[in-house]
């Protein structure tokens, strides 16, 4: 690891040129909390890497801006930066909460938002939230840029749509229009610096006692972070009573079984994720709770 080359481009153009050759030995590093730890542990995700491009100093990839009802977060923005941002705390509270549950202060001071999902680990804590917020990501290469919903970007465990000559440059999160209530939930084996066992993000809008809009996304109980569009459609328009909330939670259980199958941990996770889903819905609709 010592004799690896590290380049610190000042501009995105420079960075894109560096990775344009399709060289398998080049990797991107930002906070390094995944890359450096992974390389040290000999993870095969970083096996052939001999050069790292540090994107921390690329202006276009930093910062948080809001315009036209969309919050744009630089891909290399740290979790600490996101948590302390006023717009995010006010308008995207689930994201602030999710970022706040990641690692420790030391990790959050370095780790970046794109770093959380570019490897598409199932336990990435921001993913369910970003999915629930209908986030899209911007990807650039020398050939140009493309934007796609995060849900499409995440293909399979540890696999994404990202090509080797591309960099994720920003995440665009549209501010939810309407009177959404909701929460982010994370269950780990301890209260801090924990790998997620279950994560859920939930947004729900009630109009005239009916569910107007519903968004549910999970992490760690599904092979990759997953948005449950089918369930959302099924229950939009239904009366927001306890019976419906329970039905949503049960349906989530069914869907998790379909998506994930039965695994060693299902005996615990399946019932718990349904309970948690119900409780989150209940708290959102009736207030109070936790």
């Amino acid at each position: 690891m010592n004799n690896i080359e590290i380049t610190i481009p000042k501009t995105l153009q420079e960075a894109l040129e560096l990775i344009s050759g399709g060289n398998e030995g080049i990797g991107i590093i930002a906070g390094g909390t995944d890359v450096v730890a992974g390389m040290r542990q000999g993870s095969n995700r970083f096996g052939g890497i001999n050069q790292l491009v540090d994107v921390n100093h690329i202006k276009e990839m930093k910062g948080i801006t809001g315009a036209g009802g969309i919050v744009t977060i630089g891909a290399a923005e740290t979790f600490s930066g996101i948590i302390s941002n006023k717009i995010i705390r006010k308008e995207l509270p689930l994201l602030a909460k999710a970022c706040g549950t990641i690692g420790s202060v030391q990790i959050r001071n370095r780790a970046t938002i794109a770093g959380n999902f570019v490897n598409n680990a199932p336990c990435a804590d921001t993913v369910p939230v970003l999915l629930a917020y209908d986030s899209t990501i911007e990807i650039k290469s020398l050939a140009g840029k493309r934007e796609l919903p995060l849900a499409e970007f995440l293909k399979a465990p540890y696999r994404t749509q990202l090509n080797s000559d591309e960099i994720v440059t920003s995440i665009k999160v549209p501010l939810p229009k309407g009177d959404f209530k909701g929460d982010f939930y994370k269950l780990g084996r301890r209260r801090a610096v924990a790998i997620s066992r279950i994560t859920l993000a939930l947004l729900i809008e009630i109009k005239e006692s009916r569910i107007n809009r519903l968004r549910i996304a999970s992490g760690a109980v599904t092979p990759i972070g997953t948005r449950f569009n089918g369930i959302e459609k099924e229950f939009e328009g239904k009366t927001a009573d306890e019976k419906t909330l329970k039905a949503i939670a049960s349906r989530l259980g069914e869907r998790v079984i379909e998506v994930t199958g039965l695994r060693w941990s299902s005996e615990y996770k399946l019932p718990v994720v349904q309970q948690i889903c119900y409780q989150m819905l209940y708290s959102a609709v009736y207030g109070g709770g936790k």
Binding site: I4, E5, I6, I8, I29, G31, G32, T33, V36, A37, R40, L52, D54, N56, S80, V105, Q106, I107, N109, R110
Partner: peptide
């Protein structure tokens, strides 16, 4: 833990080249 630009970071996860 050390302070990097006044913020606490894990120095085992920062590379000299950064």
């Amino acid at each position: 833990t050390v302070l990097m630009n006044k913020k606490a970071v894990n120095s085992c996860l920062v590379l000299a080249g950064q």
